[in-house]
Write a protein that binds this DNA or RNA. Structure first.
Length: 568
RNA sequence: CGGGCCGUAGCGCAGCUUGGUAGCGCGCCUGAAUGGGGUUCAGGAGGUCGGGAGUUCGAAUCUCCCCGGCCCGACCA
């Protein structure tokens, strides 16, 4: 490719609406352009990177026996009705000319399970099927460029097994394949335990990349490697010994006091860790009190996971008033018998605590969990915070902001049962196929790579995913000797299968250097009259900005070796 | 879904308070010089001021409605 003929629309300024580094750089570098909120066009450079990431994924999935498919994006609604996912809020749906409802696929469990109906015998298993396909999700809030979008290409694979051991194996194979994929993409991932959410299934692992532009918090332990999404993470807490306290709770007036902090500061109150935080939630239509230690925060996903519910929302002011006769800020679970009460284990055995009296302007002190509160279920509900002790090794935990680039699920039989994908087992009995599903957002991975690999001058692509591996920059294209030398190096590299671009533009050298660095090409050979006078060209490595002169006749070999060494 | 901000040339912005027929920087085109880090000079092209309605002699500017985008929070398969 000659740069002078290429469509690489680089921009001097950051786009006004970009915040994340990857968003700014991918737009400025001429990789992507936004069409509408959360919808982007891939320009030639973007598509090159995209294709390289796909190539890596293909190779690794081939190693574990994956077979590539391409399923439709336009789906009939009845197939989603069978699995119950027709009501999913991110689903885009539309009507055809006959008035029938069709949907745009947001993932393809149903369709693959539908095809898996043609599997008849356990002897045909296991199978691993995958595709790269555009997914549509009507996200409430697209943001951060390619990190959170409404239309994106996802690699989704699905495993089909007759036994749960088979699923475990497929899951493990994917785990290892994902590790290699992300490593080859230049991404350090943290594999974390995650909540499976409404995907169903028993176990899931997310692959997270640390970045300030991410949206998920991950708890990790540097000492033993424990890592989990905050939705799932736990930690050890130091013991607290409470004074015995009074025989029975004592009501006291707390005019105008509504928050944990205010009670902590209130004369006759108690520090936050000696209070009970009472939250009222509507959990699958059931009014539920969730109790936490005053200084702890609720993780809604834990409430969902713990209760097995599919939806939870904070109760409204009138729902709270109707159920407890008081408003938020004066609530408590003492004496509550007609509502479900769930409590976090950090409250176990605690006594002499302060909580609301269910009467505006009053609280109770001397409350004992065991004696005064009827807890229906104890379940982990609290959010782990930085510095707490690792549940495995007791070292200090870190909490980091990350973006999810991959997710693997053990689905079980939810979709195979819903769609009737069964095989005969060894005993001649019909059994539902056991499925796993495994996703990687290709565009998101691309953005994550840029988040990780950039500096003030632009992107620093790892060779494996770089749009071009080498740029040959001709300093002065009007200098015939330079042009010819550049051309020769370019052609040699091309002939040797290196992804090379010849920057033959009639631009000032500074412009060409800046562009090459912004775009992030890992290696540059600079050909100019000064060097050629001594038979030299300049070799430049983008990462680390290493520069050295090399003999003009050896230049192509030198870069080629450097590139091949880094290709993995 | 709550809160905030923004839509004026390809990109980044000013002009709007106080209405008078649109401007700056970069980019782009032509020519010349220059050629190892966004060079310089001269000339030039490019805008239904997001859309619609209204007020007015006159609207980028004032009013109303609509559309779109960004950020924070909530949510997220």
């Amino acid at each position: 490719m000659r740069w002078s003929q290429a469509f690489i629309p680089t921009l001097r300024d950051d786009p006004a609406d970009a915040e994340a580094a990857s968003h700014k750089l991918l737009v400025r570098g001429g990789f992507i352009r936004q069409l509408m909120a959360g919808v982007y066009s891939q320009l030639p450079l973007g598509l090159r990177v995209h294709a390289k990431i796909e190539g890596i994924i293909r190779e690794e999935l081939a190693k574990i026996g994956g077979q590539e498919f391409s399923l439709p994006s336009l789906l009939p609604s009845d197939i989603l009705e069978k699995s119950g996912r027709i009501g999913v809020d991110v689903l885009f749906s539309l009507k055809d000319r006959h008035g029938a409802t069709a949907c745009l696929g947001f993932t393809h469990e149903e369709i693959f399970a539908w095809l898996a109906r043609e599997l008849r015998s356990y002897k045909q298993l296991p199978q691993i099927w995958f595709q790269f396909q555009t997914k549509f999700r009507d996200e409430e809030r697209p943001k951060s460029g390619l990190l959170r979008v409404r239309e994106f290409v996802m690699k989704d694979s699905y495993s089909f097994d007759a036994t749960s051991e088979g699923l475990d194996y497929a899951f493990q194979q994917h785990f290892e394949a994902y590790r290699k994929i992300f490593e080859r993409c230049g991404l350090d991932t943290l594999a974390v335990e995650a909540s499976s959410g409404s995907m169903g299934g028993s176990e899931s692992i997310e692959f997270m990349v640390e970045t300030t532009a991410g949206e998920d918090w991950v708890v990790s332990c540097a000492a033993c490697g424990y890592a989990a999404n905050v939705e799932k993470a736990t930690s050890l807490l130091g013991p607290i010994s409470d004074e015995a306290g009074p025989e029975a709770p004592e009501k006291f007036a707390t005019p105008g006091v509504h928050t944990i902090e205010e009670i902590a500061a209130f004369e006759g109150g108690a520090p936050a860790d000696c209070q009970i935080k009472t939250l009222v939630y509507v959990v699958d239509d059931q009014l539920t009190l969730a109790l936490l230690r005053g200084d702890h925060a609720l993780v809604e996903q834990k409430l969902l996971d713990g209760t097995g519910a599919t939806a939870a929302r904070p109760a409204g002011a009138d729902e709270i008033q109707g159920a407890l006769g008081a408003s938020a800020g004066s609530l408590g679970a003492v004496g509550v018998s007609d509502l479900r009460v769930v409590a976090d284990p950090a409250l176990t055995g605690r006594k002499n605590l302060v909580t609301g009296a269910n009467e505006d302007g009053f609280h109770l002190r001397g409350v004992s969990m065991e004696r005064d509160i009827r807890v229906d279920e104890w379940m982990d509900l609290r959010e782990v915070t930085e510095g707490e002790a690792c549940p495995l090794c007791e070292a200090e935990l870190a909490v980091r902001k990350t973006a999810e680039v991959g997710h693997i699920f053990k689905l079980g039989t939810k979709y195979s049962e819903a769609l009737g994908a069964q095989v005969l087992d060894k005993n001649g009995k019909q059994v539902p196929i056991i499925m796993g599903s495994y996703g990687i957002g290709v565009g998101r991975a691309m953005a994550a790579i840029v988040e990780r690999w950039n500096d003030d001058n632009g992107i620093i692509w790892p060779v494996n995913v770089a749009p071009f591996e080498v740029v040959v920059t001709v300093v002065n294209p009007k200098d015939v000797e330079s042009s010819e030398a550049g051309q020769r190096i370019y052609e040699q590299l091309l002939g040797d299968g290196i992804d090379v671009v010849l920057d033959d533009r009639d631009e000032r050298p500074g412009v060409k250097f800046k562009d090459a660095e912004l775009v992030g090409i890992p290696y540059r050979i600079t050909v100019g009259p000064k060097g050629l006078a001594n038979g030299k060209v300049e070799f430049f490595r983008r990462r680390g900005a290493e520069k050295r002169d090399v003999d003009v006749h050896k230049a192509a070999d030198v870069v080629q070796n450097a590139v091949l060494e880094e290709r993995r």
